[in-house]
Amino acid sequence: MRSFEHVNALNIQTTVALLSEPSTEAIAGGTDLLGELKARLRSPQRLVNLKTLSKLREIRYSPRVGLRLGALVTLAEIERHPVVQERFPILAQAASSAATPQLRHMGTIGGNLCQKPRCWYYRNKLFHCWLKGGDICFAEDGENKYHAILGADRCHAVHPSDLAPALIALDATVCVVGPEVEGEISLEELYTKPTERHRRMTILGPGELITEIRVPPPKKNARGVYLKAMERGSWSFALVSVAAQMSLEGERITDARIALGGVAAIPWRARESERLLVGQEFSEELAERAAEAAVAGAQPLRDNGYKVPLAKSLVKRALEISIRERSDM
């Protein structure tokens, strides 16, 4: 790490002001940022420590408004929270599948949602890749077993978060503050594929921060599951992950939200699959078609073609588990 100044945040207003200054970055859990600083990918002159904003560490729940997670709530707190476990099991599953106990005690939900990609070219100082302002994506013609199969354009990195797909399946929103904005957007809207003018994976601009994540109360008869395929038994970013949340009336699917991780630069909402499911009675054949639809248009690279059948299998399995668990009730 190059040297930097350090400031403790006092309140949201001053923090936004501080973060609007050049070469300033926010640090919360630090597990993503320090990795970048140690690799000398970036060298801000000043870090603003958000951990002193104690208001952002609260978890609140009411059956009427749902779940409110301050941006500084750690993944461990989410994973262990009895209400999350009971009412939002997908979220608890996603949190507990992320990283390790230690990282989950450090990492915050805000940081998790805003983390930078794990692409091994992006993370290596020897590659001035497109996402870092360079001319080419080295993965496109390089080593790409972890890379995107869906929707990639100039950059083939994938969004690494486990919680983002789960929260999108739960229809979560996030509160954003900044020098020019304050408001609530859907989590899905937070994410953007990097473009020529905006080589980032979220829409957040300088000085803009997530302060809270809001999850609406679960729908009636809603069930869901988070499934994650890793290269080993734990401590891996998802090769592919699937969060599925379904609601049923009798045998009929009344609502379905499916989001995939590890397949695209953003958490990938499988809207076509959802459309196929809603209003139908569940069958293996329907699950098969929904799974197929989830990866429609996939454009695998040389080494990541396996992600297509893997994503299909996980979608199908997630649907089956959601349905079966419901029928067990």
Partner: peptide, 11 residues
């Protein structure tokens, strides 16, 4: 997104 901004305060 709403357009009301948080007014940065220098302290």
């Amino acid at each position: 997104m709403a357009t009301k901004a948080v007014r940065p305060k220098k302290r």
